[in-house]
Simulated scan of single mutants.
Amino acid sequence: MKKFGLLLAGGIAACVLLANVGPLAGLAICLVILYFVFKQFMKSESTSGKIIWGLIGLAALSASLANVPSLIGLAAAYVLYLVYKKWNGTKKSTKNDEQDPFVNFEKQWAELKR
């Protein structure tokens, strides 16, 4: 039943992520442009250059704010990561296994053989 719940959560998260691929790409492009504009703004020494780069930066910032719903897509990608991590998780060792020196020896010996 646990695997079914993980499969259901992963399927829903995958659908949400696929629905938000466009806004995610738009957000990434806008943030790259905003970074480039910021670097040029800091390099510019003239006032008119700073004003022009500032206006371009405001336009890029407003375009990136328009893609805020893509944060839902980022959350869906994170949920997919958690589902993947939980799906392939290993069993935790019991308290007796940690105290038994021979179990730890076998684990270390297996690692050394690799």
Rank of each mutant, 00 (worst) to 15 (best):
A28I: 08
A28M: 12
A28S: 10
A28C: 11
I29P: 07
C30I: 13
L31K: 10
L31F: 11
L31N: 11
L31G: 03
L31P: 05
L31A: 08
V32Y: 14
V32A: 15
I33E: 13
L34I: 01
Y35G: 15
V37S: 10
F38T: 14
K39Q: 15
K39I: 14
K39R: 15
Q40N: 07
Q40V: 04
M42K: 13
K43A: 11
K43Q: 08
E45V: 01
E45F: 05
S46W: 05
S46E: 00
T47M: 12
S48Y: 13
G49C: 04
G49M: 03
K50Y: 08
K50Q: 11
K50V: 02
I51Q: 08
I51A: 10
W53P: 00
W53T: 03
G54Y: 01
G54E: 01
L55E: 09
L55R: 05
L55H: 07
I56R: 00
I56C: 01
I56L: 07
I56A: 06
G57D: 00
A60I: 05
A60F: 03
A60P: 01
A60C: 04
L61N: 03
L61S: 01
S62N: 14
S62K: 12
S62M: 14
S62A: 15
A63D: 06
A63W: 04
S64H: 07
S64I: 06
S64G: 14
S64E: 13
L65M: 12
A66V: 10
A66L: 13
A66F: 12
N67R: 07
V68N: 01
V68I: 12
S70V: 02
S70N: 02
L71S: 09
L71C: 11
L71P: 04
L71A: 14
I72Y: 12
G73A: 06
L74K: 03
L74M: 12
A75Q: 12
A75W: 09
A75E: 11
A75L: 14
A76S: 05
A77P: 00
A77W: 03
Y78K: 05
Y78S: 08
Y81Q: 13
L82M: 10
L82E: 11
L82Q: 11
L82V: 00
L82W: 07
